[in-house]
Design a protein around this nucleic acid. Structure first.
Lengths: 115, 115
DNA sequence: CGCTTGATAAAGCGCATGCTTGAGTACTGG
DNA sequence: CCAGTACTCAAGCATGCGCTTTATCAAGCG
C-alpha cells in the first residue's frame, strides 16, 4: 500500500479534477460519449485547448479515446474515479474513528467523575 | 447549484489534494492535531516549504490552524473532504444510471428479437 | 534584557500549466 | 484527386507551483 505508482495515479487524478473545464467535461461524459468538437462547443476557448484538457484527463485514466471515422469519441472510465473516492473515504474513516475513540474516552472520564 | 463559488472551492480542494506531500499531511492530521514542526519532520524539505503546503491546504478549507504558545497547531476540517466526495459520487451516480438505462434498453431489444 | 524556538514573509529560480496561433495528419464526400 | 472536416503537433507566452534562502516576527527562558 502507499506505493509510488499509486501516488502518481492520485497526483494525476486530482490534478485532472482541479480544473473547472475538465470537471465539466467529466460531468458531460458521465451522460455518454462525445467527440472533441462536441465537448469544445460550450467553451470560448479553441478546440486545441480542449484537446489538451482531454489529454490531461486521459493521462489520469479518467477518460479514454476511441476512433470512429474522422472523430475521436471520448468516454468516461469510472474506475479512476473510484481511486479518488476511496482515498477520501479512507481519510474520513480514520478521522471519524478517532472522533469515536475521543468520545468514548470523554465518556469514561465522565463516568469516573460521576463516582 | 454549480455556482462560481462552488467551482472555486472544488478548484482549491482538488489542487490541494493533487500533491503527495499535502495528501500525506491530510492523512497525518486525520489521526490528530500536529504543529508545523511536527508535520515537517518526516520530509527532506524545509519547514518553510511545509508551511506553504499548509497554506494551500488552509485555502482549500481542508485544515485550519490555531495558536498555542509559540506553535500553530493544525487540525483537519473534514467538511471540505465531503465536498469532493459528493462531486465524485454525483458523477458516478449519473454514469451508473446511464449504464442501467442502457442495460434496460438492450434487454428490451433482446425481448423484441426473441419474439 | 538578549537568545533560542516555532513560525510566517518575501524574493528568486526552474519547471509545469493553460492558452494561443500556425502547421500538419487523417479520413471522407464530391 | 481535391476540398473540407476533425483533430493532433509544436512553438511561444504569461502565469502559477514547489522549493530554496534570507529576513522578520512573536513567545518563552536564562
Amino acid at each position: 500500500m502507499g506505493t509510488i505508482i499509486q501516488d502518481q495515479q492520485l497526483d494525476a487524478l486530482f490534478t485532472a479534477l482541479s480544473d473547472r473545464t475538465r470537471r465539466d467535461i467529466v460531468a458531460r461524459l458521465s451522460t455518454g460519449e462525445a467527440t472533441v468538437k462536441e465537448l469544445a462547443k460550450p467553451y470560448a476557448m479553441s478546440m486545441q485547448a480542449v484537446s489538451q484538457h482531454i489529454r490531461v484527463l486521459e493521462r489520469s485514466g479518467l477518460i479514454s479515446q476511441g476512433r470512429h471515422r474522422q472523430t475521436r469519441p471520448c468516454r468516461l472510465e469510472p474506475a479512476a474515479l473510484e481511486a479518488g473516492l476511496s482515498w477520501i473515504e479512507e481519510s474520513r474513516r480514520t478521522w471519524s474513528d478517532r472522533m469515536d475513540r475521543l468520545e468514548t474516552h470523554l465518556a469514561h472520564v465522565q463516568d469516573r467523575e460521576d463516582q
